[in-house]
Nucleic acid binder design. Structure first.
Lengths: 201, 201
DNA sequence: CAATGATTCTATAGGTCTATAGAATTCCGC
DNA sequence: GCGGAATTCTATAGACCTATAGAATCATTG
């Protein structure tokens, strides 16, 4: 069986991507050195080039790692038969949980993706755009169904969800004590009802 | 009069801070070189050290430049006799307008401040904290006055305002066509009333 | 127009970084 | 334990970067 060699490589490669994510997250793409990434993997600097063709490719792989499953999970939520309010809550839960799980890679995706080489940049940009568009269509359907006010700007709303999710994602990375579940509830509640005293009908 | 020499230096220094902001914003602190900053000023790399003791000090000055007037403007809004809803709108207007005016410096403050040297870091961190606390106290007063629901988490709310403002701030930088005024209205409306169909009483 | 201080210049030390080349080592089925 | 493939190593080229030192230029004032 040749199936022994592949898992070994892939395990190590995944560790390399995670190490790169960690170092990029802490010092930024340009501030990070391949030496540091290699050391955090326990190998020498040049050996890293066995796994990555270049430093920029390492960045691209970190970003892809951050986004994998991301669109899929949103699709699942979108297609589930819950009412909109529950879906929105699930979106925040998924978004914040992802930050808990892959906080370093997501931070890198958010902050460093503009340093990607052109080709990887467009590929990854499309993943991110897909996420936003899916979210936007969720809002549009909710408006059409009468779950939301008719005058809601769905593009604005989708962008706001992402913005709020990212803002809190950044914060919970530094404050491990925050409870993701209640935080997601507050976010969803804020977007649904706002802060005023009005009670939902 | 010796008053001729000072304005000259200060004009040039301000230009240096702006040039640093521009280059830091485009390439990040570590990705930016003093050579590029100097060139965008029209001088040679080493001449930059006439205005900055070090690259890190340049970063600190960019961050301070981004935040100057920031807390003051919020204080003015806070003390004005408007109802809370109008204040919140004014906060978003001020926040987004600041991004239009000093977008590069604010981007640098948001993304690169963690690379500040320790002493500047704490000083600038306090400015930012002051802004959040002032916002938080605005919310607390609104809750006490009955303008907002009693169960609003004011810490959460203040953080959300900043997060939303920054998220949109980043976006309007790349899309010059966005109208800051209507955007601010949408943000304020979202936070006050949410997206559901319920009409305010 | 000479003196003085402000501003910018050239040159460079000293360090770090990415990426390549090829040697050395480790792993694993047989 | 042998042989070939996989993995890691050493060494280094070549580039770039920050910061300092001291010379040169510019502007202003008397």
């Amino acid at each position: 069986m040749t199936t022994q060699t592949l898992p070994r490589y892939e395990t190590r490669k995944l560790a390399a991507v995670r190490a790169a994510a960690s170092v990029f997250a802490e010092r930024g793409f340009h501030g990070a050195s391949t030496k540091l990434i290699a050391e955090s993997l326990g190998i020498k600097q040049a050996s890293l080039y066995y796994y990555f063709k270049s430093k920029q490719q390492a960045l691209a792989e970190v970003c892809l790692y951050a986004l994998e499953d991301y669109v899929e999970r949103l699709t699942l939520i979108d297609q589930s038969p819950q009412p909109f309010a529950a879906k929105l809550l699930a979106v925040f839960n998924a978004h914040l949980a992802a930050y808990r799980e892959k906080n370093e890679a997501l931070k890198v995706y958010n902050d460093e993706r503009l340093y990607l080489p052109e080709d990887a940049r467009t590929e990854i940009h499309q993943l991110g755009s897909g996420y936003r568009q899916l979210l936007e269509s969720m809002f549009e359907r909710a408006v059409a169904d009468g779950d939301l006010r008719a005058d809601v700007d769905c593009h604005f709303a989708a962008q706001a969800v992402i913005g709020i999710g990212n803002a809190w994602g950044d914060l919970i990375v530094r404050d491990a004590s925050m409870d993701v579940i209640t935080l997601a509830q507050k976010c969803a509640d804020m977007l649904m009802h706002g802060f005023t005293r009005t009670q939902p009908s």
